[in-house]
């Protein structure tokens, strides 16, 4: 008995609608974020992650409003990310009802931002999202702008640095796998999970339930994130948990 490994459905939200594309193209509509999160809450999701994929200045208001509606009826932790660049953004998201915020590109351009954010709001609500691509055997680098721009930063070193700056959790996405349904990149997941002292969420590539199991058992992830397998009802959260439990993983049922 002890801490359960978490299953986190991820909602990619564009102008108030859940969308899901394959490697950032072919975007399909997957519904109203509040309705979708209510369903996941009922099915037993452990947390929900909300990524504002356009995150333009103009639709900020829509995001705050959606987050606020979600937080009023879904009583599980809610992480919100996408375009988080200032401590004011973070404050506004927390006030709207987010429990954690995820910082991605802004951390790459201004690593000290993570320090300021965790000093001000506490590490417990600062998630650093890392988009990694394999560049050589056992070497992964950070990419920004949806996997298009290389930064030359080594993924494992970067994760360590972000934790030393106060990140309370790492959301690790493999850009090679995202949207492919071929399973997590277990190499990078394990390299990062074993290197840092904070929880690591594996993301990118889930196409079947075994992938979730592998993320925990082989990737050493503390939580697993998936989108399309849940949005299009290929599997329910309950089915995912049953598969994890059958593999000997402790889950919340």
């Amino acid at each position: 008995m002890g801490l359960a490994k978490r299953i986190i459905p991820c909602l990619d939200v564009d102008q108030g609608r859940v969308v899901k594309g394959v490697q950032f193209e072919d975007i399909r509509d997957a519904g109203d974020p509040v309705e979708v999160s209510r369903r996941y809450n009922q099915e037993g999701a452990d947390e929900i992650t909300f990524l504002d994929i356009t995150a333009s200045h103009e639709n900020r208001g829509t995001t705050y409003e959606t987050v606020s509606r979600m937080a009023s009826e879904v009583f599980i932790p809610l992480t919100v990310g996408g375009g988080v660049r200032t401590t004011d953004n973070i404050r506004d998201l927390l006030l709207a009802g987010a429990d954690k915020v995820s910082i991605n590109t802004a951390a790459v351009f201004d690593p000290e931002f993570v320090k300021r954010a965790s000093d001000k709001f506490g590490s417990q609500c600062i998630v650093v999202a890392i988009d990694a691509k394999q560049v050589a055997p056992d070497r992964w680098e950070i990419f920004t702008h949806g996997g298009r721009k290389p930064t030359g930063l080594d993924c494992v070193e970067w994760a360590r640095r972000m934790v030393s700056y106060g990140a309370g959790e790492i959301l690790l996405t493999s850009m090679d796998r995202d949207g492919t349904r071929d399973g997590f990149d277990l190499g990078v997941t394990r390299a990062v999970a074993d290197a840092v002292s904070v929880p690591v969420i594996a993301s990118g590539g889930v196409g079947q339930l075994d992938h979730l199991v592998d993320g925990v058992l082989k990737g050493h992830a503390d939580a697993v994130l998936a989108a399309s397998i849940f949005h299009f009802r290929q599997y329910t959260i309950a089915e995912a948990k049953a598969a994890m439990q059958a593999a000997g993983i402790e889950v919340r049922l």
Binding site: I76, Q124, E169, P199, A223
Partner: peptide
């Protein structure tokens, strides 16, 4: 890992605040 983050089980006592809540129910910690 630290922080202790996620759903963990609580051994409850007979305190009235736990009424109707089973022993070893999971709550969210961070």
């Amino acid at each position: 890992k630290v922080p202790h983050m996620g759903w963990n089980q609580v051994s409850v006592t007979t305190h009235p605040m736990w009424r109707g809540i089973e022993n070893l129910t999971r709550f969210y910690f961070v």
